[in-house]
C-alpha cells in the first residue's frame, strides 16, 4: 500500500514539475533559457576584456564584479577549517599523548 502511494505521488509530482518546465519555456517574451533582462551578462561579456585585460570572463566576474561573493566564499572555507580544528582538537580526556 505504501509503495503504491509513493509511486502515485512520484508520478503526480513529476508531472507537475515537467509541466512547469514546459510552461516556462513557452512564456511570452522570456521564460526559461530566454530571459527578458539580458543587459547584465551582455555588459560582462563585452566589457570585461577592456576593463580587466583578462580572457577569462568567469574570473573577471568572480574577482572583480562579484568580488564580495568570493570574499564570502573564502570566509566560508576559513570557518570550515576553524570548525574542523575545533571538533578534532586535543581534549584533556584523551589521555594518550598523540602529538
Amino acid at each position: 500500500m505504501k509503495k503504491i502511494i509513493a509511486v502515485i505521488a512520484l508520478i503526480v509530482i513529476s508531472a507537475f514539475l515537467f509541466g512547469g518546465v514546459v510552461e516556462m519555456r513557452n512564456q511570452d517574451g522570456g521564460g526559461f533559457g530566454n530571459p527578458v533582462e539580458t543587459e547584465m551578462d551582455e555588459y560582462f561579456l563585452e566589457n570585461s576584456q577592456d576593463h580587466n585585460q583578462v580572457n577569462n570572463v568567469v574570473t573577471a566576474v568572480l574577482f572583480d564584479y562579484r568580488g564580495l561573493d568570493t570574499l564570502g566564499e573564502a570566509t566560508v572555507l576559513f570557518s570550515a577549517v576553524s570548525g574542523v580544528l575545533t571538533v578534532l582538537r586535543k581534549t584533556i580526556s584523551s589521555k594518550e599523548g598523540e602529538e
Binding site: 580587466n52 585585460q53 583578462v54 574570473t59 573577471a60 574577482f63 572583480d64 568580488g67 568570493t70 573564502a74 572555507l77 576559513f78 570550515a80 577549517v81 574542523v84 580544528l85 578534532l88 598523540e98
Partner: peptide, 30 residues
C-alpha cells in the same frame, strides 16, 4: 596583465591549499 585579479588568484590559491591540506591532515591524524 589583469591588475589585482592574478594577485587575488594567488592569495586565494594559497588559502585554499592551506585550508584543504589542514582539513585532510587533521582528519587523517585524528
Amino acid at each position: 596583465t589583469g591588475g589585482t585579479i592574478p594577485l587575488m588568484n594567488i592569495v586565494v590559491g594559497m588559502e585554499v591549499i592551506a585550508a584543504l591540506s589542514l582539513i585532510l591532515w587533521m582528519m587523517a591524524k585524528r
